[in-house]
Design a protein around this nucleic acid. Structure first.
Length: 243
DNA sequence: AACATTCCCAACCGCGAAGCA
DNA sequence: TTGCTTCGCGGTTGGGAATGT
């Protein structure tokens, strides 16, 4: 079934929402809360499928949504997280309060994907060469860096031992051509991540997560807790601890 | 001014996961 | 366990706005 409930029902409206439709949907949700989307049409007389109602609410009407262009900081986060997770738009969106997966997806397609054409490919290849040249050096560097991070080492070991299928691997770390410090990165299967736990590599990206105003670690808002392969951001740990 | 092209984003579609009887 | 319904996600599309020729 493609579109929830009475999917092939005649008379579903499609296309842009009108202000009157928005009003009906907002009223419904203010009285009944989110969810049970298939009941919206029954309760309000709205000629929209549950799926359409959910989409409209989530992407446009929901309170707290930010409008307007993404900030450079948000853009940076998208780039970083996309490099890590790929097209996991909803996952990325969780770390950009007020932004929707749809918005981020659209933004990526229009601002970044088009740029990864010829010029970008050349640049990528250049980078690959540079990175390869650095890798040998970095292998040693990694050891040195990790030696400075006992906890990180522990966690890496933990991931490797307990989740050998995830094949945790340090991809690179070191210093780029502009003398910017790379953090060690760990690529792993992200499918098992839960909302409540922050993977090691996110922990390692402490600066990135420091978006908050309520917690110097920028982590508490993510509700991190202890779990086998995940680093707890509650308590005394400081993300800046790494470098 | 007129037309063509590109950009942008809201909305749709198909699929798979989750929940439940 | 199975089948059905609901939900959420990622990919794609359609069309208006902006820009270029």
């Amino acid at each position: 079934m493609g579109s929830w409930g009475i999917c092939e029902q005649e008379g579903w409206r499609k296309g842009p929402w009108t202000p009157a439709e928005d009003k009906l949907l907002i009223e419904y949700i203010s009285q009944n809360g989110e969810g049970r989307w298939s009941f919206v049409s029954k309760c309000t007389g709205l000629k929209r499928s549950g799926k359409s109602c959910r989409l409209r609410w989530v992407n446009y009407l929901r309170p707290g949504l930010k409008k307007g262009h993404l900030t450079p900081q948000e853009e940076g986060i998208i780039i970083e997280l996309h490099a890590l997770w790929g097209n996991k738009w909803s996952t990325i969106a969780r770390y950009l309060p007020g932004r929707t997966d749809n918005e981020i997806k659209n933004y990526w397609r229009t601002h970044f994907k088009k740029k990864s054409k010829p010029d970008q490919i050349k640049q990528e290849k250049k980078k690959e060469i540079i990175i390869k040249q650095q890798q040998q050096q970095q292998t040693d560097d990694n050891k040195n860096i990790i030696n400075k991070i006992p906890l990180a080492t522990q966690l890496l070991t933990s991931i490797e031992e307990k989740n050998n299928k995830q094949e945790a691997e340090i991809v690179f770390s070191g210093i780029d051509e502009n003398h910017h410090q790379f953090l060690p990165m760990v690529y792993q299967d992200t499918s098992s991540w839960s909302d409540n736990f922050i993977p090691l590599d996110c922990y390692l990206w402490g600066g990135l997560w420091d978006l908050g105003d309520d917690d110097p670690n920028g982590c508490s808002k993510m509700g991190a807790q202890n779990q086998d392969n995940y680093y707890s951001c509650e308590g005394e740990y400081a993300v800046d601890y790494i470098f």
